[in-house]
Simulated assay, not measured.
Amino acid sequence: MSLMVEPRTGWTFRLLSRINSQGGHGHQRNRCLFSGPHGFSTPVKDCGVVLLLASGWGLMAQLPYLRRLIIGYNNYTTMTHRVHLVWQLDHIDDGASAKEFLDRALLEDTLDNVYIVAISIYYQKGHIDSSLRAPGNHRRVSFYEDRRPNWEEIIESELARKHNKVWTEKLLADGRSVPFEEHDCWTLVTVSTVTETRDQLRKQTWRFLNQRVRLRELAYQPPS
């Protein structure tokens, strides 16, 4: 079992110290008790487009929704036909520990060779090497070096895609497209970001209310 843990000042700090004392790659058996997840859960299955916006450790709050949407699409239990995960990092190396989780999601997103997931990673420093590249040639992961996301442009781009005639006709060929037409009016934006970004998104999504854009701040928000 793989886990990602954000080290703070208590048990997680002691856990990191133990790993470092073993050179970062030692193996030792320890008994642990995990509970949760805790906090509220945001309904996602009835939205045509879902934008998952994260910065730093905020990715961990978004991963359960990413996987839930993929499984729901594969099982015909969700109306979502587009999921875009946008992740902002200070250094690209900070994302290495999440590669396994993102790769797993991309591998699950293969129903009938139709992909619904796109991932955009913005980072200020570092260098992309082959170990960070996603598996396959699907081109679903985009890296943006020395750039910060333009949240307004990202939202506008997804709204434009939703109303694109070619994309709509493709959806109508899908067996689940009849109920999808009724629910496609909603675009959901879930947020687990630093305070400054959340403030920006509140102002920007307000402009799109007439286009039925809904903003939800998740229970976990990373420290600024």
Rank of each mutant, 00 (worst) to 15 (best):
L85N: 04
H81Y: 10
L3E: 08
V189N: 03
Q200K: 09
W186G: 02
M60C: 15
A61K: 04
S131G: 05
I71N: 04
P135S: 08
I155K: 00
L16T: 04
S35Q: 10
H27T: 14
V83D: 01
F34Q: 08
L66E: 00
D94N: 13
Q211L: 06
V50Y: 00
R67I: 12
R212V: 01
R161P: 00
W57K: 02
W57N: 13
D90Y: 09
T190D: 00
A134K: 02
T78D: 05
A98W: 01
P222S: 09
K99C: 08
L218T: 09
R18T: 10
E158C: 10
C32L: 15
W167S: 07
R29A: 13
A54S: 12
I19S: 07
P7M: 06
Y73H: 14
G39M: 07
F13D: 12
W151L: 10
D174C: 11
G36Q: 06
S224G: 15
R8N: 06
S17G: 06
W11F: 14
S192N: 07
H27L: 12
V114M: 09
R207V: 12
R148E: 12
F208Y: 15
R29T: 12
V141A: 03
S97W: 08
G175H: 11
H81F: 07
L63V: 13
S97L: 12
A160E: 14
G136F: 03
L132F: 09
N30V: 15
L33E: 12
L85Q: 03
L33C: 09
I154Y: 00
